[in-house]
């Protein structure tokens, strides 16, 4: 059943109006129905709390300075964990801050199996005193550190660059935190950088 007359009571329509409605009728048949929204799409997803301002000259300068400092950290006083010491082409970079600490998470393109390379850099985190204490980078889910990306230690004052590979899909809204884990902190530890 696709005839116009099967759908619409065309009685009394003048030819011009009928032609107009017939075109809409054909369009509806042509494009098909819109998809059913899944429950996760019935509300506006999290788009972040603020509009990211376009960089001003001053911010660009600060960003260049920070990037230079972090690059120097990678090749200078810092050390690298894991693999991937070569060039790192990032798909997304997220800045992180903590008390007296600055950091960033850079995400590269995933391989065909869905492994996402992540390069984490930080400077300023204090050395943890516990014997087995360390820091862990997590993906945030439902507002909590949920999926671990990898752990690292610092020597205090030193800059750190750590490479991880994670199997979790990274989207434009993925967020990370760094937690400190020692004998007094239950998993996933205290959040020290967001």
């Amino acid at each position: 059943m696709s005839r116009f007359e099967d759908f619409v009571d065309a009685e009394g329509l003048d030819p011009g109006e009928r032609a107009r409605l017939e075109r809409v009728h054909e369009l509806l048949l042509e494009v098909g129905p819109p998809p059913e929204l899944t429950s996760s799409l019935t509300r506006l997803p999290d788009v972040g709390g603020r509009v990211v301002p376009l960089p001003t000259r001053r911010r660009i300068g600060a960003a260049i300075a920070l990037a230079a400092a972090l690059a120097a950290a990678a090749f200078g006083g810092g050390y690298v964990l894991g693999n991937g010491h070569g060039g790192f082409s990032s798909w997304r970079v997220e800045a992180m801050t903590g008390r007296n600490a600055l950091g960033s998470v850079a995400v590269g393109a995933p391989d065909t199996a869905g492994n996402w390379p992540i390069r984490f850099k930080e400077t300023g985190l204090p050395k943890l005193t516990g014997k087995d204490a360390y820091y862990e980078v997590f993906v945030v889910h439902d507002g909590k550190p949920r999926f671990p990306c990898g752990g690292f230690r610092v020597t205090g004052g030193a800059r750190v660059s750590a490479n991880f590979t994670v199997p979790y899909e990274v989207t434009g809204s993925t967020r990370w935190v760094v937690t400190a884990i020692d004998a007094n902190d239950h998993w996933p530890g205290r959040v020290v950088m967001t």
């Binding site: 997803p45 999290d46 788009v47 972040g48 809204s173």
Partner: peptide, 9 residues
């Protein structure tokens, strides 16, 4: 679904 979210971001 992810693409919808990224679009609105």
């Amino acid at each position: 679904e992810d693409a919808v979210q990224e679009t609105f971001v």
